[in-house]
Design a binder for these strands. Structure first.
Length: 565
RNA sequence: GCGCCCGUAGCUCAAUUGGAUAGAGCGUUAGCCUCCGGAGCUAAAGGUUACAGGUUCGAUUCCUGUCGGGCGCACCA
């Protein structure tokens, strides 16, 4: 395919130059130079290889260029520059034909790996993305909302680049947390009846449990209250209801999961103990101070970790190891976990334990989804109507809408703290970046409607009488569109979805400039159709990028200028 | 005390596994609609990348130290 020609081209060039290895191709980094004088694409590949091979960088660059299967119709120039950069410049004729090719590739469907922006380089490699995985003890909060936006975008990005990626939610339904949940609900139900029952120490205080207790079947709940093991009844009911509500929130937010994996299942199948045995067989556990320890310090951890306490109960670590062992056993080549900021201390122990178990050292990648500070009027926002103690995902969606929330979360790199300006997000008629991109899409749709009323349609194939793109604004826009597949590839490879909104904001800005510089629908029919096709290709790229983010691409947007105060 | 994340324009953040002259948005200032959506465009101003060293062709990026902010440091999850 034409748009993957760059990557394919360098793969071929490496082979012909006798420098081939898959690792080297993976390190290929194509970037758009800041200075347009340096061309449309640049890569430092020769500089990287020079260090490895001990050859002069410019000589490596010359060798790669000589070996590059160059199509003169695509690239007008491929040159060495500076210390050894390879700069490539598109031929204008290639850019003129680009919109038609984009339209032919069509709308993006990550699952089917179809549409402009998709690749199949990963050849169906299986990756599991586990995200959110909040304890089923309360409503989802804003960090969960951020993780949901990032996780679901990653799944789409990975699928679009040829992986077989699946989203998964790990349900912690087996620990002391859910027992405490059961006790808390039982106490709330007793309170509801006016009965005395001690509220558990460290129990869950949120208002939502009062609501939940009020919805239980009174006779059954009353009976359970009288039984010594009654808390288990409340636990199971509460668990299902919390899960149902989390599922509803996430589904409405566009975060779909291939599977909800229950920790209790691991215990029931005996996987937890089997994992311990497996570690023992490998000589990776030992007894000390009455407890059982795993030798994580042999794999980079700063100390060994307890997996079975002196009272015989496993720590959280053991089921976690068993869970990731199960992921590998299911055939996933990589596991990407999105964790909250308070769990970063667990990365090393778990990765080390998995190596102790014999898994590949790079199997588990953990991305920390950093803290979110909601700001309104310059002040931190904390209160929630429903939960009484924190802002929930539902509150946020109700306030600013799912599209806007996802766009804001995806704009920032995942592991950086985020100050979320609610005032800016609430503005629907001002300089809200989420609307800027959607507006560009709606504006193009409007232009196409206007043209259609005059009998003008951007046919997929260019007519012979149509002029080539010539205006600088047209060529700049076409160059930008050509970059999209590479942006998708880079964002997936680096696990950095925030490159998508950055690209889309830039593309929208360039489109707006084109719009002001070049009138699309004019008396000149051939020119109008050429520009309509460029506009439609832009619309498709915006649509595909937004689709990867899980954000809608509206055909129309309400004029909201009147709503301004 | 130890570990991890962060420190970039007045504010919020980019800068593609080390790349060429550090960029956007907001805010500020000055302009642009008889014309395809003004939720738009053009321009100006704004920087010793917290600080001090080091590594190299090249450092916002990597290493060491200092300062500041956040989060962890359990036989809790």
């Amino acid at each position: 395919m034409v748009w993957s020609a760059l990557t394919e081209g360098f793969a071929e060039a490496l082979k012909r130059a006798g420098l081939w290895s898959p690792e080297r191709l993976a390190r290929l980094e194509l970037s758009i130079p800041r200075d347009t004088g340096h061309g449309d694409w640049t890569t430092n590949l020769a500089l990287l290889l020079a260090r490895e091979t001990g050859r002069p960088p410019r000589a490596v660059a010359e060798a790669l260029i000589a070996a590059f299967p160059r199509d003169p119709a695509q690239f007008a120039a491929i040159e060495v520059a500076g210390p050894g950069f390879i700069n490539l410049r598109y031929a204008d004729a290639f850019l003129s034909g680009l919109p038609a090719r984009i339209l032919a590739a069509g709308a993006l469907d990550p699952e089917a790996r179809r549409g402009f922006g998709c690749h199949d380089h990963a050849r169906g490699e299986k990756i599991l993305v586990e995200y959110v995985s909040a304890n089923p003890t309360g409503p989802l909060n804003v960090v969960n909302a951020r993780a949901a936006a990032v996780g679901s975008a990653l799944v789409r990005l990975l699928n679009a680049t040829g992986h077989a990626a699946a989203g998964e939610y790990y349900v912690n339904d087996a620990g002391t947390q859910v027992d405490l949940l059961g006790e808390s609900v039982a106490a709330r139900f007793a309170e509801h009846l006016g009965l005395a029952r001690a509220f558990p120490e460290n129990g869950y205080q949120g208002e939502y449990l009062r609501d939940l207790a009020g919805e239980l079947d009174p006779p059954a709940a009353r009976a359970a209250l009288g039984r010594p093991d009654g808390a288990a009844w409340f636990r199971d009911r509460a668990l299902e209801r919390m899960l149902e509500s989390q599922r509803r929130d996430l589904s409405g937010y566009g975060a779909e999961y291939a599977r909800w994996f229950r920790e209790s299942e691991l215990h029931a199948r005996g996987e937890v103990m089997r994992t311990l045995e497996s570690l023992r067989e490998r000589g990776m556990v030992y007894e000390a101070e009455g407890a059982t320890w795993v030798r994580t310090s042999s794999f980079g951890d700063d100390k060994d970790r307890v997996v079975v306490r002196s009272n015989g109960a496993p720590t959280y670590l053991l089921p976690d190891i068993a869970y990731h062992r199960d992921k590998r056993a299911r055939g996933f080549r990589y596991a990407i976990d999105l964790w909250g900021p308070d769990h970063h201390g667990h990365i090393l122990p778990l990765q080390a334990a998995l190596q102790a178990l014999g898994l590949e050292s790079g199997f588990l990648e953990v991305l920390i989804v950093q803290q979110v500070n909601l700001l309104s009027g310059g002040q931190p926002v904390r209160m929630s109507k429903r939960a009484g103690e924190f802002v929930t995902l539902g509150d946020l969606v109700e306030d600013i809408g799912a599209d806007c929330a996802k766009f804001f979360f995806l704009m920032r790199s995942t592991n950086a703290h985020l100050d979320f300006d609610l005032d800016l997000a609430r503005r629907q008629n001002d300089e809200n970046p989420a609307y800027y991109v959607q507006y560009a899409h709606a504006r193009i749709a409007s232009i196409l409607r206007y043209a259609a009323e005059r009998g003008l349609e951007p046919s997929a194939a260019a007519g012979a009488e149509e002029p080539a793109l010539a205006d600088p604004a047209e060529l700049l826009l076409a160059r930008r569109l050509a970059a999209f597949p590479e942006v998708v590839r880079g964002a997936a490879f680096a696990r950095e979805p925030h490159r998508l909104p950055a690209y889309l904001l830039d593309t929208a800005a360039i489109f707006h400039r084109f719009y002001h510089a070049c009138r699309v629908v004019t008396e000149d029919q051939a020119l109008s159709i050429a520009r309509l096709r460029l506009a439609e290709a832009t619309r498709l790229v915006l649509h595909n990028g937004l689709a990867l983010m899980g954000v809608s691409a509206p055909q129309r947007m309400e004029r909201a200028a009147e709503a301004a105060t």
